[in-house]
Nucleic acid binder design. Structure first.
Lengths: 232, 232
DNA sequence: GTGCTCGCGTTCCTATAGGATTTGTGGCAT
DNA sequence: ATGCCACAAATCCTATAGGAACGCGAGCAC
């Protein structure tokens, strides 16, 4: 905590049009993804307010918005806690859910794809290739970001607000798991190849192939993670 | 403080364990579904606080939680507005999403069903049959509740927290209500028969049949709604 | 040593006050 | 008549204060 004021709005910033609660939301989200807030830990409203040098009011609002992401849980009159750690069963459930939703997204996205959307996907895969992959979170963070962006783009291109919302609830959990799985990035080459395969299928314009490529990718991810992951 | 505190927790009540923001949340939800808050209308924080005779703080928290349901939208520094009317495209997207998720839930629930779960499902269908179906929201609310409970139970019995969360983000019945804008329930007989068919398929223990029955049900709901719904 | 009670600190929760921003209105210049 | 600017009211946003419940540890009785 040597930083002077990390989340305070800069005075020079012209059209921030963002209120304090938004900054607090972003800060808490970042802390949750970074692991600075460990699973099971209490998230005190007053404590976070002191930490972020704001009043409890915007913290309360940010936490209320964070609750629906599943990253924090609230008990009335007792406060918020970070969601508990991922077990192997949790991970299996998460992959089952991804296998139910993401192939559908891929199929629809393929049917409704625009050239701009395709370009964005290509950029995401390119970013995956060039991203550094060190051992610390700061190093492979951009890799994770590009990975998430790839899947998010597909969900967005499916042009279904409800499927996008459903995927987004999974997305945060995926990130959280990858963090606390704690194995770093060991499967980059294979993952990049699978992403490329999905991209190729999308480019080909065959929705069935796109869905299949996505199924293949998620199943492979599951297989690698289940092999690597530490047993409970 | 002249009033004898209308919404405050009663002192004799042992484990109320509900805070004011929860009551405000329920009240706003009811007003939204009742149509007392029309689509597009502004939902002033201070105004609602005056109306409900509470301070703006719990109203702010309740609105922050309501935002993720899609019923209200927030613009920074401008406040909340009731979400615009549900168009046919919105409804089509919702049904597309339900068709992607609910058959999977039905399949998994069938595989993992317990006898208690089956009993709960039977109860939900029975409640559907006996529920009153008047023209006002207060009258057919219990019908919607039983309908929602049926689908919710299946999602829960699938024993996958993420699929359950994904289903909940759809808020199927709530959104469905908004399409009709309060014209009531006109398809009860057919809907009940379809629910019974899903239930029978579940009882038979054949996951494929359960998924198919669910697909049939959702498609029929879509067909009836698209025929009834007012054109844009 | 064990169990109970009391008191202190922490935290959640709500109300209130005041600064900042947006919106609507009226007047003035062109 | 039209466009622009100032002013006022409403609203959002944040900080602060205080009440109520909970947790924890010291101290005392047995």
């Amino acid at each position: 905590m040597s930083e002077p004021s990390p989340a305070l709005p800069r005075p020079g910033f012209p059209v921030s049009r963002q209120v304090l609660a938004d900054h607090v939301y972003e800060a808490l989200l970042e802390w949750l993804m970074d692991g600075r807030l460990e699973p099971g830990a209490a998230v005190s409203i007053d404590g976070m307010a002191r930490e972020l040098e704001v009043s409890p009011t915007p913290v309360r609002e940010a936490l209320a918005r964070l609750e629906h992401t599943g990253m924090v849980r609230r008990v009335a009159l007792k406060g918020y806690r970070v969601a508990p750690v991922f077990t192997r069963e949790d991970f299996a459930e998460l992959m089952e859910a991804r296998l139910s939703i993401e192939p559908v997204n891929a199929r629809l996205a393929c049917e409704r794809m625009t050239s701009e959307g395709l370009d964005a996907l290509k950029q995401a895969v390119e970013d995956l290739r060039t991203a550094p992959r060190g051992g610390t979170f700061a190093e492979y963070r951009s890799y994770l970001e590009a990975d998430e962006r790839f899947h998010q783009l597909i969900a967005a291109q499916a042009r279904n607000q409800f499927l996008l919302a459903a995927y987004n609830t999974l997305g945060g959990q995926i990130q959280r798991f990858r963090l606390f799985g704690g194995v770093g990035i060991t499967d980059a080459e294979q993952a990049i190849a699978e992403h490329q395969a999905v991209l190729d299928a999308m480019s080909s314009g065959d929705p069935g192939k796109a869905a299949e490529a996505m199924i293949n990718h998620v199943e492979k991810v599951r297989g690698r993670a289940m092999a690597d992951a530490p047993e409970d």
